[in-house]
Computed example of a mutant assay.
Amino acid sequence: MREALNIETLVDGLTPVRRMRPGQGMMLGLMLAAAVAVIIALTSGIRADIAAMRPLPIVVLRSGTLLLLGLATLKAVTAMARPAIGGAQRGWMWMLAAALLFPLASIIGMIDEGRVPMEAVMNGAARDCLRLSLSGALAIGTAMILWLRQGAVVNPARAGWLTGLAAGAFGTLAYSLHCGENSVHYIAIWYGAAVTASAVAGRIAVPRLIRW
Rank of each mutant, 00 (worst) to 15 (best):
M1G: 15
A4L: 14
L5N: 13
T15S: 13
R18C: 12
R21N: 14
G23N: 06
G25A: 03
M27V: 10
L28K: 10
L30T: 03
M31C: 14
V36W: 06
V38C: 08
L42W: 13
T43S: 13
G45W: 09
I46A: 08
I46T: 09
I50A: 11
R54V: 12
P55Y: 11
P57I: 10
V59H: 10
V60H: 07
L61E: 11
T65E: 06
G70Y: 08
G70H: 05
L71Q: 08
L74E: 02
K75M: 07
A76T: 04
T78A: 00
A79W: 02
A81S: 15
A81W: 09
A81G: 15
A81L: 07
I85Q: 13
G87P: 04
R90S: 11
M93T: 00
M95R: 09
A98G: 04
A99E: 07
L100Q: 13
F102S: 13
P103H: 05
P103V: 04
L104D: 00
I107C: 04
D112P: 00
D112I: 08
V116F: 15
V116H: 04
E119H: 15
V121C: 09
M122A: 15
A126H: 05
R131T: 14
R131H: 04
S135R: 00
A137K: 03
L138N: 04
L138G: 05
G141F: 01
A143Q: 02
A143V: 06
I145E: 08
W147G: 04
L148G: 09
A152V: 15
A152G: 00
G160W: 02
G160A: 07
G160H: 04
L162F: 12
T163L: 12
T163I: 05
T163F: 07
L165M: 14
A166L: 01
A166G: 09
L173M: 10
A174T: 11
H178A: 13
V184E: 05
H185P: 07
I187Q: 07
A188H: 05
A188N: 01
I189P: 10
W190A: 01
W190S: 05
V195E: 01
T196Q: 02
T196P: 09
A199F: 00
A201Q: 01
A201N: 03
R203M: 03
R203S: 08
A205G: 03
P207Y: 06
R208L: 07
L209T: 00
